[in-house]
């Protein structure tokens, strides 16, 4: 599998999954799946021309810099990599991005965010994980907070979410927490996906021209 242009090979032709099946399984329409293929093709051929998205290609698309590692972008990449083989294929790309569609159910967004924040995959979000994430955010931003302020933020948030007080946030507690704090899911909706066929119309236009 190489990096042929989409005028020669669309998502159907290169065996990246049937757009109709992907559309029926996700929040995307068939046209939107085909438009996403344009974006996918560009990303997956930007450095290593094997038609798969490698982490450095993901970083390049996110930050215009293939060497720029970021704690949270790493987490997103790892969760997109559903097969856990170190690369993202087109099906994984579409199925994972679908969670970020403004039309995707809140329950999907809630569950995905839980997995993002369950850093060690224990089935719980632990206080140490929350602290680690706050410190990572501070590290990447210009925000400078003292240790005691960080502790206060972490403690306060954790105590709100950990309603049974067992020292860890389980999926049910997380659901209740995000209901009361919708800002916690702010990063889970991507308005761009609403207009994806406008942003990447070329495949659809070529596809219709070939029909």
């Amino acid at each position: 599998m190489g990096c042929a242009s989409s005028s020669q090979f669309g998502p159907r032709a290169v065996g990246h999954g049937d757009p109709a099946v992907l559309a029926s399984d996700t929040s995307f329409t068939v046209n939107e799946v085909e438009a996403l293929y344009e974006l996918y093709r560009r990303m997956s051929c930007s450095i290593i021309k094997d038609g798969l998205i490698h982490k450095e290609e993901f970083q390049l698309a996110m930050f215009r810099n293939s060497k720029k590692a970021n704690f949270f972008a790493d987490r997103v990449f790892d969760l997109f990599d559903l097969k856990r083989n170190g690369v993202i294929d087109f099906e994984e790309f579409v199925r994972s991005l679908s969670v970020f569609h403004p039309r995707a159910p809140t329950s999907e967004k809630t569950a995905f965010a839980f997995k993002l924040y369950d850093l060690r995959g224990t089935g719980y979000i632990e206080k140490e994980e929350l602290r680690e994430m706050v410190l990572a955010l501070l590290d990447e931003s210009d925000l400078c907070l003292s240790d005691s302020v960080v502790e206060a933020i972490v403690d306060n948030t954790f105590n709100q979410a950990d309603s049974n007080g067992d020292g860890k946030i389980d999926p049910e507690e997380w659901k209740e927490f995000v209901k009361k704090n919708p800002a916690a899911l702010r990063n889970m909706s991507l308005p761009y996906l609403q207009d994806i066929t406008l942003a990447f119309p070329s495949f659809i236009m070529r596809s219709e021209a070939n029909d």
């Binding site: 996110m62 933020i153 972490v154 306060n156 990063n187």
Partner: peptide, 25 residues
Amino acid sequence: KPESMNAFALISRSQGFNLGNLFEK
């Protein structure tokens, strides 16, 4: 006030979650 800050809302501001960057040409 730190007590009123939500750690998850803070985290959600990370550039690492800004998937909109993927759509910038």
